[in-house]
Computed example of a mutant assay.
Amino acid sequence: MNEPLFGAPEISLENLSTIEQSAPNLILWAVPVMLLFTALEMFITFKQEHPFYEKRETIGSILVGLGSLVVGASIKFALLYATVWLYNQLPWRMSLQWWTFIPCYIIFDFCSYWAHRVSHEQRFWWATHVVHHSGEHYNLTVSFRLSWIQNLKTIFFLPVALIGFHPVVFFTTNQVAVLFQFWVHTEYIRRLPKWVEFIFATPSNHRVHHGSQPKYIDRNFGATFIVWDRIFGTYQPEEEPPIYGITTNITQKANPFMINFHEVADIIRDVKAARGFRRKLFFIFGSPIKIAEEKQQKLNKEAVIAD
């Protein structure tokens, strides 16, 4: 007899190690494969003399990626505990059935779209994401540039957990979603068939997201499915080669601490200098683009006065 979908028994918090073992560590298993393809892309780039890699930036990406693995391993048990605890509070708990991965992944990706979009629209969240955009070259190592404080965005995925998916399904979904985003960070895969480009966040669609031209800024937030961007009006096709990087590119390109926390340091400085509570909130939660424009206008005025 098939196990009923809803009303699964609670998971004992004393047996979390069992759940941890049940959830495959896909990211750890995938690391050798990711490194192999990254090395292959580096080799081809070198042989073809393409400007897709820069030494200091590549070192920075690798160090940031290693730090992300350490942070993830350090807080994995705490996240697992919180997820299982929440799961136990729900009367509509789902049993562990493989096919629930499909609706879980779709809903997870929908939440990911909004988490990603908010991370571009509010500076506080942008500080947890700017790491990923700070590279001025587009290659597979960019997928390693995951902020060490990105787990703050776990709050955006609470709706997925509240639906009652089994913790093993939830954590497997999260890992597959992260791994999907590896292959889209390359210049070597150009346009795919139209139906693929219409549904998925392909390399072409994601290159647009990393572009710094006005037409490309804050576009194509979809992690796996680009259809969310088509639905909510944030889709932009790749029409010209993107110029990568952020408004003010960092100078210490190999320093993982600078890469991770330069925006946090800027927020602290801006808040200290701001007068009034409303202005302080603006520099914390305002639009990163508006804040950058305002600061640039101020610099321009100071330059005119100095002349």
Rank of each mutant, 00 (worst) to 15 (best):
N2Y: 15
L5S: 05
L5A: 07
G7P: 09
A8T: 02
P9T: 07
S12Q: 11
S17Q: 10
T18D: 07
I19R: 00
P24K: 04
L26H: 01
L28N: 03
L28A: 09
P32W: 01
P32R: 01
V33M: 00
M34K: 00
L35V: 08
F37I: 00
L40C: 08
E41N: 12
M42E: 08
F46Q: 12
F46G: 06
K47S: 15
Q48H: 12
F52Y: 15
Y53S: 06
K55L: 10
E57I: 09
E57D: 15
I59G: 03
L66E: 06
S68T: 09
S74P: 01
I75R: 08
K76V: 01
A82D: 14
T83Q: 03
L86A: 14
Q89F: 12
Q89C: 14
Q89N: 13
P91G: 08
M94F: 11
L96Y: 05
Q97G: 03
W98M: 05
T100Q: 04
I107T: 10
I107F: 15
Y113R: 07
Y113Q: 08
A115F: 08
H120Q: 14
Q122K: 05
H129D: 11
T141V: 14
V142I: 15
F144R: 00
S147K: 09
W148S: 06
N151M: 07
F156G: 03
F157V: 05
V160I: 10
F165K: 03
Q175T: 00
Q175F: 02
A177E: 09
E187G: 04
Y188R: 14
R190C: 02
R191G: 03
P193C: 13
W195Q: 12
W195I: 14
E197K: 04
E197N: 08
E197Y: 10
A201C: 13
P203V: 13
S204I: 11
S204G: 12
S204H: 13
S204V: 12
H206Q: 13
V208L: 09
K215Q: 12
D218Q: 12
D218G: 11
N220D: 11
F221A: 00
A223R: 08
T224D: 07
T224A: 11
F225Q: 11
F225W: 14
W228V: 02
I231L: 15
F232P: 10
F232D: 09
G233H: 04
Q236Y: 09
P242V: 01
P242H: 03
Y244H: 12
I246D: 03
Q252Y: 14
M258P: 00
M258L: 04
I268Y: 13
R269K: 15
L281E: 11
K295D: 02
K295C: 01
Q296D: 08
Q297M: 10
L299I: 05
N300I: 09
E302I: 08
A303K: 13
V304K: 14
I305S: 15
A306G: 03
